[in-house]
Computed example of a mutant assay.
Amino acid sequence: MSESQSLLALFVSGFISATLLPGGSEALLAWQLSQQLHDPWNLWAAVTAGNALGGILTFLMGLILARFYPLRNLNKPRQQQAQRWIERYGALALLFSWLPLIGDPLCLMAGWLKTRLLPSLLLITVGKAIRYLIIVGLI
């Protein structure tokens, strides 16, 4: 696989993993790192960019939902937890947008609750970048 194909695959995997769809970006990154065919920092940048953009898309979906559907009482535990985190910590909670199960609802809820755009996008990106830095450092 060429480097451009590897980077594209990681970008797409990272993007899909950050939306409400399941994905395996960590496994793909770990496998590509283990093959030692490409620069680890290029792999990190590609998967981080895809994952951050996916989180940002989920945030924007929350903004769109807020326009048409005012926030009501939520009945799903993960949504309720995400709402509590955003209401308590604001955009800072988005540093944890990389967490499984709660990360996607955090991004969606932050958009729905209309947290400040630029800090939110920056914190989504930083949180996801740190996650992949840890993986790059462990392999």
Rank of each mutant, 00 (worst) to 15 (best):
L53F: 08
L118W: 10
A110Y: 00
S25Q: 13
I139G: 02
I86L: 07
Q5T: 13
L121D: 06
L60Q: 06
A30Q: 08
G14Y: 10
A52S: 15
R78L: 15
L133R: 05
L43W: 09
S17Q: 09
F15Q: 01
R131H: 11
T115P: 00
A45S: 11
L10G: 02
L99R: 03
Q83T: 00
Y89V: 04
A93Q: 07
G55W: 03
Q83W: 04
H38R: 02
Q80E: 11
L8R: 08
Q83L: 15
A45K: 02
I139A: 14
P22T: 10
L57M: 11
D39A: 14
L113K: 06
P77W: 10
K114V: 00
V136P: 00
I86E: 07
I102W: 04
R84V: 15
L133C: 14
I130W: 11
I56Y: 05
R67I: 02
Y69R: 10
T19W: 08
L28K: 10
P40H: 10
G111Y: 02
G54H: 06
W44D: 04
I56P: 04
D39I: 12
P100Y: 12
T115D: 02
P77D: 12
V12K: 07
A91W: 04
A46C: 07
N73D: 15
L7T: 08
Q81V: 02
